[in-house]
Design a protein around this nucleic acid. Structure first.
Lengths: 145, 145
DNA sequence: TAAATTCCCAGTAAAGTAGTAGGAATTATA
DNA sequence: TATAATTCCTACTACTTTACTGGGAATTTA
């Protein structure tokens, strides 16, 4: 049930982008440094994100990355699916990456039934949380003692 | 976000046990065959389950495994934790296997915050579904066209 | 032209996953 | 008591995934 570093790093950097007011391109080096991520690894991650349209890039000196659309329209779930592949805990319930499993009868498989509910509950969170939501929730922390 | 085969196989076999009326020990061979699981692999899994008290075993001819307590008191979540380790998508929110992560500030880390909610939603499902529930829900299927 | 940046491809060490293999210990039954 | 059936235990292994690292080409700004 683990989130890969790819997704974790990707989300951290994207949320960092989302927290900015202007949409000027930000250098990868800066994103990496601020979030304590190996630069070359983040580079790979951002190429993938760019190919999916999550960010767009500006090459050359003074270049960098910016979000491809407003942060409130980029869902955490979408980022994870792009970077990690499917969300489904077992491949036999995935819509985008279905693969049959080895259980005797998929239609009555009780593990499949439970995992279906697990998947739904995960999706309910990550597909309803945008980068903007995520960026907002660490700033105005709920009151504390 | 994947469930390992270990957990999947373990759950399948346990739910199979849970679906039986009598509590006579069942041979591993039979459990493996019925659920299409490599015997030797299932053997390893059941040794772990036995060490955790989920099942108890009877050695020798005519021996086998039986649930350690009634199926309604064994939660799917407990089995997964035993076989796969922690549930938490990131180790920095795990109570049983906490490890610091690399983000600049764990207290305000937005990824951590989202993953906390993901973890809670997963746990809400798997810690409220017993083996008995799982065994029951494939038999009396909700009405179908 | 020089510096700064993204882009692209390849390699790699370590860990995790999903098993296999072989045999010792224990027990029921004939 | 012998035999067959079973669990128990340890070790090994092939494969895949993860998390990087390295080198350099292409592009743009100044």
């Amino acid at each position: 049930m683990k989130l890969s570093k790819r997704s974790k790093y990707g989300l951290l950097a994207l949320i960092d982008l989302a927290a900015r007011k202007d949409s000027a391109p930000v250098r990868l080096k800066e994103l990496a440094k601020r979030n304590n991520i190996p630069v070359k690894f983040l580079e790979q991650i951002f190429v993938t994100l760019r190919n999916s349209g999550i960010v767009h890039s500006q090459i050359g000196a003074g270049g960098g990355y910016a979000l491809g659309r407003p942060a409130k329209y980029i869902m955490v779930g979408q980022v994870i699916r792009i970077l990690d592949g499917t969300i489904a805990p077992v491949s036999c319930i995935s819509k985008i990456a279905y693969e049959p499993c080895t259980c005797p009868d998929e239609r009555t498989c009780p593990v499949r039934a439970v995992m279906n509910r697990v998947r739904d509950s995960i999706v309910a969170v990550i597909d309803n949380t945008s980068l903007a939501d995520a960026a907002a929730q660490n700033k105005p922390q709920r009151q504390r003692a």
